[in-house]
Nucleic acid binder design. Sequence first.
DNA 1: TATTGTTATACTCTATAACTATA
DNA 2: TATAGTTATAGAGTATAACAATA
Lengths: 148, 148
Amino acid sequence: MNAAQPVSLTATVSFRLGTIGTLTTNRFTERIETFGLKLKDVGLLHLLQDGGPASQLEVARLLGVAPSLVVAMADRLEVLGAVRRLRDPGDRRRQQLVLTEQGHELLGRCTTAAQELDAELTAELDEPTRQALNAVLGTLAASLGLPH
Amino acid sequence: MNAAQPVSLTATVSFRLGTIGTLTTNRFTERIETFGLKLKDVGLLHLLQDGGPASQLEVARLLGVAPSLVVAMADRLEVLGAVRRLRDPGDRRRQQLVLTEQGHELLGRCTTAAQELDAELTAELDEPTRQALNAVLGTLAASLGLPH
DNA sequence: TATTGTTATACTCTATAACTATA
DNA sequence: TATAGTTATAGAGTATAACAATA
């Protein structure tokens, strides 16, 4: 007993989540390039929609990225007209990032792109299976501290 | 009709696969660093186990990476004693990469690491749910042309 | 001349560190 | 002196292009 039967690496949940996740990320990245967006820009847009205005440092902490990267993302999104920087009058060191109407629309297009990608990725699954998969992934995301 | 109800980006399968996949990849990468391996080295080891000896250019094509990257991986794995380069006597341009006994053991340790990570990631799921998840991921991987 | 592997170089993404303005 | 944001610099990972050996 205790003899581990030989399990293939590719049969593990981790390997499959990693490879499918990478493929998914690559395809999504291609699509949003069309909008002039980088992958993490989408996370920033989503954050602003959900949590309202936030200072750049708050954003960096919430996204788990360096503050200098938030500068680059905010620059890019400002050029696209998707966000505006508003100086906090009470503390003029702070930049409040706010989503513009255009930013909201852009986020909507990203969501549509994700839904289209969903259909493409799960084309082989029947609807109950697809929904069950999404539910389990939601549980997993929640338990791992990811947005869900 | 046809009015799309507002779906959150984070509720899509694509977003969840992307974020969970990235987290999984990061954690797996940390673990195999202990063995002196980079992420894609593991894919190479697995390939050699499954398909037997292969030329470096075949490996590049199968892994979907540049030939120059295979050189770097083979260098690293050769130093670790995990693979050997054998000149093809029939065509001396070709280097046949073969897995050594040590390479086989190393791959085994990677598989164990993935299984441990599986347990960690799916700790919140009951066993039938965990198995159902793995089965659907296997279906997905197969339909997307990924190893499974 | 074409192909395999290698080396040299460049590009993308992101972090760390130095710096400026404000508190 | 401490903090928010910015700019400068560096490192990891990987691709493309130039090159050498062999066919």
